[in-house]
C-alpha cells in the first residue's frame, strides 16, 4: 500500500453505552478510491462520521483509539480544522434549500476562506461544478433554487459544495442510494475523474458491489462494527477470502 491518508488504530465508538465500532484498524491509501461495504447497521456511516468528527454532534458518544489523518491525530487538532480537511456527501441530497445553486457551492469556499476575491470565488464555483459534472446543466441558472434540480443533480450539487472547500479527502455515504442509473453513472464518472486528475483520496460507502467494482481501487468490508476483510478491489471481487464478504458480494445480505 501507498502511504496512508487515514490510519485508525483500535478505533472504538460507543453510543449510549452500545458498542458501534469495536476496534477498527484500517489504513486508507492516499490518492485512491476506497469502497466501504457491509450490511445495514455494520457501522459504515459511523466510521465516516468519526473521521471528520461529525459524530461529536450526537449526545452520549464515546470514541476511543487513534485516528491519524496525514500523520496527525485528529483528536489533538481543532475540530473545525479537521472538518475542513474532509468534504462530505450524504445519503440523501441535502443542498441548503434557502440558497441558490451558486451560493450552495460558494458557501463552502466562503466559510473556509478559500477565495480572496469575487472573481476567484466565481472560478472556484465553476471549477467545483465542473468537477461534479454539473456545470453544463446549471451554468445558465446559477441563481435558481436547488429544488428545481432533479435528485441526481442535487446530489452532484452537494458534491460540488464539498469540493469548493478544497478538501484533501472526500467522504461519500451511499451517495447514489436514491438515484437513478443515469445520474449514478455521472456521479461515478465524476469520482473517477477526481481521483485521476486531482489525485483525490476518496472514501465511498456503497451497498452495491457493482459500484465498488466499477470505481474503487480498494475494498473494505465492515461487519458488526469490525473490518472483516480489506484489499485491492481486483482481488476481493474475484475471490474473497471471507465468508461474509462472499455472501455480501453474491447479494445474499
Amino acid at each position: 500500500m501507498v502511504s496512508p491518508a487515514v490510519e485508525t488504530r483500535e478505533l472504538r465508538v460507543r453510543i449510549s453505552g452500545r458498542d458501534i465500532l469495536k476496534g477498527v484498524n484500517l489504513r486508507v491509501p492516499e490518492g485512491a478510491i476506497t469502497a466501504i461495504m457491509g450490511p445495514s447497521g455494520s457501522g459504515k456511516t459511523t466510521f465516516l462520521k468519526v473521521l471528520n468528527r461529525l459524530i461529536e454532534l450526537i449526545d452520549g458518544v464515546e470514541v476511543s483509539g487513534e485516528v491519524r489523518v496525514f500523520g496527525s491525530n485528529i483528536f489533538d487538532m481543532d475540530v473545525y480544522t479537521v472538518r475542513r480537511m474532509f468534504g462530505m456527501v450524504f445519503q440523501n441530497p441535502n443542498p441548503f434549500p434557502h440558497m441558490s445553486i451558486y451560493d450552495n457551492v460558494a458557501i463552502g469556499a466562503r466559510i473556509n476562506r478559500v477565495a480572496r476575491s469575487r472573481e476567484e470565488l466565481d472560478r472556484i464555483v465553476r471549477w467545483a461544478l465542473e468537477k461534479a459534472m454539473l456545470w453544463d446543466e446549471v451554468k445558465n441558472r446559477l441563481r435558481d433554487p436547488p429544488w428545481r434540480l432533479s435528485g441526481g443533480q442535487q446530489q452532484r450539487l452537494c458534491l460540488a459544495r464539498a469540493l469548493a472547500m478544497k478538501p484533501r479527502i472526500l467522504l461519500l455515504d451511499e451517495p447514489t442510494a436514491n438515484i437513478d442509473p443515469v445520474n449514478t453513472a455521472k456521479l461515478e464518472e465524476a469520482l473517477r475523474a477526481l481521483r485521476r486528475d486531482e489525485g483525490m483520496t476518496i472514501l465511498l460507502v456503497t451497498h452495491m458491489p457493482h459500484q465498488a467494482v466499477r470505481v474503487s481501487d480498494y475494498i473494505v468490508m465492515f461487519y458488526d462494527g469490525m473490518v472483516v476483510e480489506e484489499g485491492p478491489t481486483s482481488e476481493i471481487a474475484l475471490n474473497p477470502a471471507n465468508e461474509i464478504t462472499r455472501r455480501f458480494l453474491r447479494g445474499e445480505m
Binding site: N52, R161, A162
Partner: peptide, 17 residues
Amino acid sequence: PKTYIEAAYALGMKRAQ
C-alpha cells in the same frame, strides 16, 4: 431537518455560523 445542520457542520462551520 437535521441533515442540513449536519451538512453545515461538515463544511467546517462554527455553531454560530
